[in-house]
Design a protein around this nucleic acid. Structure first.
Lengths: 108, 108
DNA sequence: GTTTTATGTCGCAAACATACGACATAGTTT
DNA sequence: AAACTATGTCGTATGTTTGCGACATAAAAC
């Protein structure tokens, strides 16, 4: 029961991005992909304390949001960070928070 | 059914922050508090397409996470952004993503 | 061509989030 | 002190997320 349509697009998009990265498993996947530097296949599951099925679903969410993408290579799938998409989302994030954080309005 | 304890603390904290800001209503509240610049009371409800109860709950989440705080002033409550806390969380956010975004590892 | 391997999808259960009306509390006004 | 006002909390309905085993698919190895 959510009322999404009533908020403006900027907020909507930012909230969606935040939701994607609001689970430690998904952050862990991003971190892992960044660290291995090379696009590695889905043996990510072995590195996380979650079942393969669950990891596969987290990968799907990251894929759907465009933060990563996977390329089929025979039996395996090489996943990698999608740099441009991450940059784009971070830029929007920074834009929003630069409006908010820089003013000294702390009550106390 | 969540398995949070198994991920390291950095990821955990960051995920929690992301979760707090992953709803457009909460972003709208932060934006509103930033725009009015002065700490205003809970007539925030009037500005959002949500019931007073619902807004009150979103305020509670923001309060609990430390992003805002409220000060009682007679019958009203003056809410305001908690600048230091926001800065702190943004710093952790940036720290994480600087490790991730700056490398050119896009597959395609 | 059967077995093995890497992966995705389905269906379910438990947990969590969202939204809101009804009620509670506590300060203000009369 | 009775009525009014601003706010929070409770209970509840409905929707969404998380996690996983079981099954499906399709390439690779034998």
């Amino acid at each position: 029961m959510i009322k999404p349509e009533v908020f403006d697009n900027e907020l909507q998009e930012l909230a969606n991005f935040a939701k994607v990265i609001s689970h430690p498993a998904r952050l862990a996947i991003l971190k892992y992909l960044a660290e291995t530097k090379t696009c590695i296949s889905g043996d990510i599951s072995d590195k996380l304390p979650l079942s393969r099925t669950t990891v596969s679903q987290h990968l799907k969410e990251l894929r759907d949001s465009g933060l990563i993408h996977g390329e089929i290579d025979g039996l395996k799938i090489n996943y990698c960070l999608c740099g441009s998409s991450i940059e784009e989302k971070l830029a929007k994030f920074d834009d929003f928070f630069s409006k908010i954080a820089c003013q000294e309005i702390t009550c106390k």
